[in-house]
Design a binder for these strands. Sequence first.
DNA 1: CGTGAGGGGAAACGAA
DNA 2: ATTCGTTTCCCCTCAC
Length: 290
Amino acid sequence: MAGFPVSLTDLDKFAVEDGIVYQPVSTIVSEIIRDLSPMMQQDGFTFPYTEEEVVTSSEQDSFVELQVLSADSNPMWGCQNKAEPPQFRPVYSPDGYSSDQDVCIPTENTFEAQSRGYRPDEYDSDGMTASGSESPTSSRSGSTSSDEDEDYVPLEISDDEEEAEDDDPSLKWSCRYNPSGFHTRVSPSVSKRRHGQPILWKFLHEMLMDPRYSKHIYWTNQSKGMFKFSSEHKEEIARLWGEKKGNRCVMTYQKMARSLRNYSNQKRYLVKVKRKLQYQFLTDQHMARA
DNA sequence: CGTGAGGGGAAACGAA
DNA sequence: ATTCGTTTCCCCTCAC
């Protein structure tokens, strides 16, 4: 088990120790931040970036997820929204802050570096133990308060995934728009096959983030990805989904819910909550391992 | 009993 | 032709 999150400088160091020639992660992250900052600011988020405030967490070999931490922001979500109290903060991951971006890695070098995975053997379940490295706990605790950490669940890496490493260099994990930090990874086959097509869970997430539909669909516990359809307006959401897909027939909530139950049954993307009209996006930790 | 919601089997559909 | 993510239909259960 690797200990996450780890600092960018440590990732760089271990990658070098592994003999990987690549563009330093810290550089890549800086580029990502530079690209994302204007869009984040448009959404009312500040980005108090310093190197100490950026860490990564990941469970897939081929992917490193970026989180931004700062003293005045929620430790789980990172960024400070100027307009709202800090109960929810998106994770700005290397997905890219774009709904149509399937593969987020900007350069070939970056992609190769990520495919190798930043999980040095010196890591264990107690966290980072590599010599001379900063503890991941301390890298976070320096800028966070413990009482806000209860929702934070470090991602874990299974032995299966360890063994799968480097099986096929062409099989990279791509990722999709995910400002809430739920479900950031999509298998390559899915990514290719669904490229450009509307995806239901993604559509619902967009609805959730759109204030125009706050009466139709809304978060019941955003930090846990739980949301609810309005009983009054659920059919409207379904209709919009049908329109977006260009279905011949009018989409109904009943039919849309059937699709959501498929997600739920397969433990993909989201599950049904035992409450009326409520569902919950799955975190990476809870995603079924295909 | 009626209604609304949850649940799931099975087949069909359409894009890649 | 195949795969995958739905879509559609239909029937059942359950709670209110």
